[in-house]
């Protein structure tokens, strides 16, 4: 127990961190691939893919949660397949909360990574090619390091967004204490209680501290990377 948190509150905090970390970790490679595709490739239907990726940003979160229910619920197309083949169910589970958080974080993460990929000076990649580097080596040693500040920004934005995720999560996996009751859901639950004000206050302060901490860590990391120099000489 830290900072006067009760065991129940401690469970809410660790669950929120777990859900957010898993959501960001699992979605990061996917977001990078989507961002790369949108930044570098030209293909028919690119506009549609772009719109679909950003859809959770503008849809009411409840609608996103409802769509997740349709797809990943017990009778959903993917939900039934996961259950039949792997014996896995996401409904009312923390893994479902992580999926909802990831879906809601994807637009922000893709956007941050895409901007950093678009900002890479392509002339540096052609310079690396003249030095005998393969496409994989160019990606690993030039493109990826130069995109790193954007990737870090995406991680922090995604983490903060996941920590704050409420609508899609409560619609998809409901409020199950110890399993899906993350910080925002716990705050909402406490607000429904007649004597829940102190709990709401503590959780609200905790949320603010976590989000601030994430932003400060990200800023420090980005500055440390930028110190190496970003100008093309």
């Amino acid at each position: 127990m830290i900072a006067g948190l009760s065991p129940e509150e401690w469970i809410v905090l660790t669950l929120s961190l777990k859900v957010s970390l898993v959501a960001v970790t699992v979605s990061l490679p996917i977001c990078f691939c989507i961002a790369w595709m949108l930044a570098r490739w030209h293909f028919p239907g690119k506009l549609l893919v772009d719109a679909l990726v950003h859809l959770p940003l503008v849809l009411p979160p409840v609608v996103t949660g409802w769509l997740l229910l349709l797809l990943f619920g017990m009778n959903g197309l993917i939900g039934r397949w996961l259950s039949d083949v792997f014996g896995v169910t996401l409904l009312f589970r923390w893994t479902g909360a992580a999926l909802a958080a990831a879906i809601m974080a994807v637009p922000l993460m893709v956007r941050a990574i895409r901007l950093s990929i678009e900002a890479i000076d392509r002339r540096l990649e052609s310079a690396a090619a003249t030095l005998g580097a393969s496409r994989l080596r160019i990606f690993l040693t030039i493109s990826l390091p130069l995109a790193l500040p954007g990737v870090l920004a995406a991680v922090v934005l995604g983490f903060a967004r996941s920590l704050g995720e409420f609508g899609a999560t409560i619609t998809f996996v409901s409020d199950v204490p110890g399993e899906t009751r993350t910080l925002p859901i716990a705050i909402y639950a406490a607000m429904q209680m007649p004597d829940g004000e102190p709990i709401v206050t503590r959780f609200a302060i905790l949320s603010i501290l976590l989000s601030l901490g994430a932003l400060i860590v990200s800023e420090i990391l980005v500055r440390r990377i930028a110190r190496g120099g970003r100008h093309v000489i």
């Binding site: 002339r123 030039i142 130069l146 190496g228 093309v232």
Partner: peptide, 15 residues
């Protein structure tokens, strides 16, 4: 091609 190309804008890797 094993080319040694010195670009007008140099293109040193900034990182």
């Amino acid at each position: 091609r094993q080319v040694g190309y010195v670009f007008q804008d140099r293109r040193l890797f900034p990182h």
